[in-house]
């Protein structure tokens, strides 16, 4: 099973060059049944990454481009009067896919944002009184432009908390970019990707991940981390219990990807920047966003053993 997972990683890495750690984190996020937020400038490969993941995992893929005039109905679907049957027929929106790419989520109004986020949280949508389940598995990869860009509605902290991880792809390394320029168009590679896992296998792996062993000593480390954010003065606020659960789930998935059936502190440290970065804010920096320095502090100062 793990060799298949590694094959998945390799396949995606062929399409997205020089982003192994991010790809690995993204896969771990999906295995932990979490949603992913990618924050980056346009053109850094966000779409490619999500599309490639969808293909190798054999998931149906939909993309929603968020704009300021996007309405909740555009995401969830609408009922349209069908003249032939004389009834309202429900036209499912793009959210009824297994992997949804919500592009530039911060361009839409908070109303539309929250429609998506509520669906993410509950795994179902309620439209005109009828509750419709979303497919299983269901992943959302949302992308976001950096906040400093104009004309955006930043996601509030409470909404950010619903994403298991936040990643930033960043510029590719020089060698990778050269390969990119020399090789084929990346988009053209995408259709050639084969599904490596089927739904049953993915479900099996997802069921396996929570069984990865987290010993007392490891839980203590997670508690120390969380407690540090709650007690140290440089943190504007501490991590929520949901965040600590997310951290543990992500660490389990990471350990699983690493081929271990138990979590070690290094797993937690590997996922820590992605999992808690968007959940923290420095107190002395009221305007700033994200806690990169804080995460580094946590990694450095909180005793791992």
């Amino acid at each position: 099973m793990r060799t298949r997972l590694n094959a998945c990683l390799d396949a995606v890495n062929q399409v997205l060059l020089g982003k192994e750690p991010q790809v690995r984190l993204a896969l771990a996020c999906l295995l932990a049944r979490g949603h992913l937020l990618i924050e980056d400038l346009p053109g850094m490969g966000k779409t490619t990454l999500s599309h490639a993941l969808a293909r190798v995992l054999g998931l149906s893929f939909q993309r929603i481009q968020f704009t300021s005039d996007l309405l909740p109905g555009d995401i969830l679907g609408t009922s349209v009067f069908d003249r032939e049957s004389g009834q309202f027929l429900f036209h499912p929106g793009p959210i009824f896919a297994e992997l949804v790419l919500a592009d530039e989520i911060n361009r839409a109004t908070p109303k539309s944002q929250s429609a998506l986020l509520e669906a993410m949280e509950e795994g179902q949508v309620t439209i005109e009184g009828a509750t419709r389940p979303l497919p299983d598995p269901f992943f959302v990869i949302a992308t976001q432009n950096p906040v400093s860009q104009g004309g955006t509605f930043a996601l509030p902290e409470s909404q950010l908390d619903r994403f298991l991880m936040r990643l930033s792809l960043g510029y590719p390394a020089k060698a990778a970019e050269k390969a990119l320029l020399l090789g084929d168009s990346r988009r053209s590679l995408l259709p050639r990707l084969e599904a490596i896992l089927d739904h049953a296998e993915l479900a099996l792996i997802q069921a396996e991940v929570p069984r990865v062993r987290a010993s007392d000593a490891l839980i203590d480390y997670v508690l120390r981390l969380v407690d540090a954010t709650r007690s140290q003065p440089q943190f504007a606020w501490g991590l929520s219990p949901r965040a600590s659960l997310a951290l543990l789930a992500a660490a389990r998935a990471w350990a699983f990807l690493d081929g271990r059936d138990y979590v070690i502190p290094e797993d937690v440290q590997a996922v820590l920047p992605a999992v808690v970065g968007h959940r923290l804010r420095e107190r002395s920096d009221p305007a700033g966003h994200g806690g990169g320095a804080l995460v580094q502090w946590l990694l450095r100062e909180v005793p791992a053993l």
Binding site: S68, D69, L71, T109, P110, K111, G150, G151
Partner: peptide, 16 residues
């Protein structure tokens, strides 16, 4: 000129 805060000049979108 910046779009800042609620005002009346520039249409921003719909809200409930």
């Amino acid at each position: 000129m910046r779009a800042l805060g609620p005002g009346s000049e520039d249409f921003q979108g719909l809200k409930s």
